[in-house]
Structures are given as C-alpha cells and as structure tokens.
Simulated scan of single mutants.
Amino acid sequence: MATLFETVFSAPIDKRKEDWLILLASTVDEVCGKVENLTPENFLSTMLLYLRICKLQILQFARTKKKKSKR
C-alpha cells in the first residue's frame, strides 16, 4: 500500500517542488536585479534570518496564548 501511495503522489509533488524552486530562483534574481549590491547569497541569508525571527515570535505568541487560556 505504501508503495502505491508513493508511486501515485511522489511524481506530482516532485513536479510542484521543481516548479516552486524555479519560481523562487527567478524571483530572487528579479529582486537582486532591482536592488543595488544585492546578491542571491545575501538575499537568501537575510530571508532566513527574517524567517527565524518570525518563527521565534510565533512561538512566543503561542506560549503566551496557551498561558492565558490556562487561567
């Protein structure tokens, strides 16, 4: 059963992933072309930092909400 599931769903998922990565690369190139001194490397590292900060804020919000709901 697992093999059938993998066979049926892995190809469409891989195709969507490939399409998404192509779109991501195109978007990064476009943004870097519009901003002076911006390279794909520093753009992506900046975005990773931003996403980490967002994740920390979401976790903090969730903890605060959980504490308030226990009261």
Rank of each mutant, 00 (worst) to 15 (best):
K65I: 04
A25Q: 02
L51D: 10
L59Y: 04
K34H: 03
L38C: 15
I58R: 06
D19Y: 01
F43W: 05
A25K: 10
K17H: 07
L38R: 02
T39C: 03
V35G: 06
V28M: 04
K67M: 13
V28Q: 02
D19I: 06
A25P: 02
T27R: 10
K34P: 02
L44C: 14
I13Q: 00
R71E: 06
K65D: 01
I13S: 02
I53R: 10
V31R: 09
C32D: 07
L4N: 12
K68G: 00
V31T: 06
F9W: 15
L49R: 12
N42I: 03
N37M: 00
L44W: 02
K65H: 11
L4E: 13
S10Q: 11
K55V: 04
L49M: 05
P40F: 08
L23S: 01
F61N: 12
W20R: 14
S69M: 06
E41K: 13
T46G: 11
E6N: 09
T3S: 12
P40I: 06
R52W: 07
W20M: 07
S10F: 07
K15S: 03
E41Y: 08
S69R: 08
L23Y: 02
R52L: 06
D14Y: 05
E18S: 13
L59Q: 13
T46P: 10
E36I: 10
L44E: 11
A11I: 05
T64V: 12
K17S: 04
L44D: 03
L49A: 10
E6F: 05
S26Y: 01
Q57M: 08
A62N: 15
L48C: 09
K34S: 08
L38P: 06
L21S: 07
S69P: 03
R16F: 02
L48I: 00
I22R: 07
A62C: 13
C32A: 01
A11H: 04
S69G: 01
W20L: 10
T64E: 15
T7K: 11
E30L: 07
V28T: 08
L48E: 11
K66E: 13
K68E: 13
K68P: 00
V8H: 07
L38A: 08
P12C: 07
P12H: 00
T27L: 02
Y50W: 12
F43D: 05
A2V: 09
S26M: 03
R63V: 07
I53K: 13
L56D: 09
A2L: 15
I58K: 05
Q57C: 09
L51V: 07
A2Y: 10
A25R: 11
L48R: 13
L44G: 08
E6M: 11
R16C: 06
R52K: 09
K15Y: 02
P40W: 04
I53C: 05
L21V: 03
T39P: 01
K17R: 11
I53V: 15
K55P: 00
Y50L: 15
L38I: 08
I53P: 02
V28L: 06
S69A: 13
M47C: 04
F5P: 00
R16H: 05
K66D: 13
T46I: 03
D29I: 08
S69Y: 12
C54K: 14
T7G: 00
P12W: 04
T3D: 15
A62F: 11
L48S: 06
L51G: 01
S45N: 09
V31A: 12
F61W: 13
I58M: 05
T39K: 10
